[in-house]
Design a protein around this nucleic acid. Sequence first.
DNA 1: TATGAATGAGCATTCATTCAT
DNA 2: AATGAATGAATGCTCATTCAT
Lengths: 210, 210, 210, 210
Amino acid sequence: MTTGDLTGTGASSGGRTSRTAPKLEKLLSSSAGLMAQRGFSQTSIRDVANETGFSLGGMYYYFKSKEDLLYLIQEKTFSSLLEIQEAAASHDGTAEERLRKLIGNHLAYFLSHANELKVCTFELESLQDERYDRIAVLRRRYFSCMAHAVAEVLGESPNHPGVRHKTLFIFGMLNWIFMWFDPERDEPVDRLGDEMVDLVLNGLNGGKDG
Amino acid sequence: MTTGDLTGTGASSGGRTSRTAPKLEKLLSSSAGLMAQRGFSQTSIRDVANETGFSLGGMYYYFKSKEDLLYLIQEKTFSSLLEIQEAAASHDGTAEERLRKLIGNHLAYFLSHANELKVCTFELESLQDERYDRIAVLRRRYFSCMAHAVAEVLGESPNHPGVRHKTLFIFGMLNWIFMWFDPERDEPVDRLGDEMVDLVLNGLNGGKDG
Amino acid sequence: MTTGDLTGTGASSGGRTSRTAPKLEKLLSSSAGLMAQRGFSQTSIRDVANETGFSLGGMYYYFKSKEDLLYLIQEKTFSSLLEIQEAAASHDGTAEERLRKLIGNHLAYFLSHANELKVCTFELESLQDERYDRIAVLRRRYFSCMAHAVAEVLGESPNHPGVRHKTLFIFGMLNWIFMWFDPERDEPVDRLGDEMVDLVLNGLNGGKDG
Amino acid sequence: MTTGDLTGTGASSGGRTSRTAPKLEKLLSSSAGLMAQRGFSQTSIRDVANETGFSLGGMYYYFKSKEDLLYLIQEKTFSSLLEIQEAAASHDGTAEERLRKLIGNHLAYFLSHANELKVCTFELESLQDERYDRIAVLRRRYFSCMAHAVAEVLGESPNHPGVRHKTLFIFGMLNWIFMWFDPERDEPVDRLGDEMVDLVLNGLNGGKDG
DNA sequence: TATGAATGAGCATTCATTCAT
DNA sequence: AATGAATGAATGCTCATTCAT
């Protein structure tokens, strides 16, 4: 089996539609937890076995290699987030509302899937070749989603050079959160989202001058 | 020898003033290059030996452990950057000018010391105990430097809760650069700095409304 | 697996009752052979691998560290000897008969398990912390066994200060054997035991005077 | 230089007569301390350098190799002890008095040169080839010294088979002391010597019967 | 499905020793 | 007489992976 189907033996890969078996589910979330904490390369397959109660060899029924395990996590997580965001991006409303929604969704997803999202955010480079490419595609779609909203807010074309940078600045703010967010101190996330959107839209000067 | 002087046997540690020997210098910059590229845990001491031409064991004359090597890089780099920024933070001028300068300096330092700064940015957690603590102190001083400028621009106290988040957003923008910057495409850095400062101060709406 | 169960995850530790698997058995006896010959610290895990035909890493399935391997040998050997001696010490008969039996048993055990006993005798200090403590307990029980017999022969309390020294002198004679015993020259062991008991009971003067 | 003169370049080797330079003296006694504590193979030349304040390379002026250092310690210590004992063995008096003196001297020497004597006692096998042979010669002379006294007490020829074993039993008692002696508890050494001689001459039964 | 047993490559580190100075 | 710098070999150990069952 070993989902993701990079070898093309089955048709189960889609990710969004395939029902992930509960044991695999547990495997993925435990692994994500460990990898978020220690990083991919410092998480050993043995760690995962201990955490999940599986035997070392037994887990290889569910994935074909450590890298495949990482891929599975990223594929599942990223395509699920992407689905949410592409839906949000196609909603009616003002550009500003869409941007607000995209940022809010990202933060909400972060709250509920912190480990998985951290792994998606920081471990793309631990994938190679085809697995890298597949996730990179999702990432580009996600970037594009955000870039369009930014462009619209700016009233520019998405290809306008400034748009790229500004979108990347926004992703920087969003992704850096993994480095400092402390639920005790920084909740609620709504509020955080508002602050971020406010900075993004109006800057520190708050629209007072320009 | 093994500089860094975590054991407190000498007085050479300061970093800024001690003339680092040229061989150590090369060791540190080669290591930083590898670690920036592959990550600390995936950079083997053998890699460093091959890159530098040293024998495997020979390098242990210059540092006492792999972690010590990482510490040496971070200490040297971070304290040098910090020196620059603390000077900038104490200059006369408007708060906005100071913030602009801090961001500009950071980006300029990034351009000239990309590898080292990347290692400082992403590998703090690879240090432990005392070495972690020592670098964490520098990082906090750096944060504080930026937070003061942000607070001044906002006309708030540095302790105001919003200041922390906004400062972290700015660091997010700055630090995420390692993930996407491409000299071909994204130079000159001055321009990038201006864009970032512009976003930070005025937002996407560019101060046009509030 | 890694028997010995210092981490308390299983119930196999007893040593006397647990049937040691044949592969582990071979590992332990080969290791004991090498360690008896060259000493613990000079016996490399690679040596053991070569001797046993295991791969280097493969052996770590059976023990968790080199020190654990040493512990396993000592625990198994010492608790087996102790069982024999504690039984002998509780037999009926005169004190002199009991002492004779203890010395005879020790020498007989030496003949059949020379390597293991040598390792027990000279490598206690190569163990640390809990492993040290556990073997030290066995050793103290063994000492106590012998000391009781000595005390009885002397007609003293086991706590009498002279008893300790005399017991230690006897252990000195017994343990020093590893340094000189040569089967060609010094067999049979019965005879050696008689000579030792004779010295211990009657001295060089053979009870002729006092 | 590197005393001991195994290479035959000089005539300084004798040991008894050559005035050992004070720096070498310190080197030898520090080394003996470390080697007595941790064993020869676990004492690194770096340990010795740190303990003595010498630089690593600098010490090689005084000995040619780690093994040479061990040899130097053993040669100096053993030949000094041997000198004392051969003198004692040639004194007038009864055989019993001579045996008593030999045991007493050994214990006294142990008290004043515990580290060195421990190294002589347990690290002969760490020497090889010629160095081994040279120390083995001293050891055999020492054994012979004691064996003659034992033989005389027994009224046997030194070649009588029982004499060898009995002498070895005595050396066992004497040498095992390194394993348990605690100055707090076991002083004074005179008393210990008397107890040992008493056991050796009269046994536990104290000559009461036979 | 799942496991126990095993492998081979790789890793950080230590160490005795050398040598130019 | 002594040092700083460097080496090459060895060591204990971990790890992803495999495979018969």
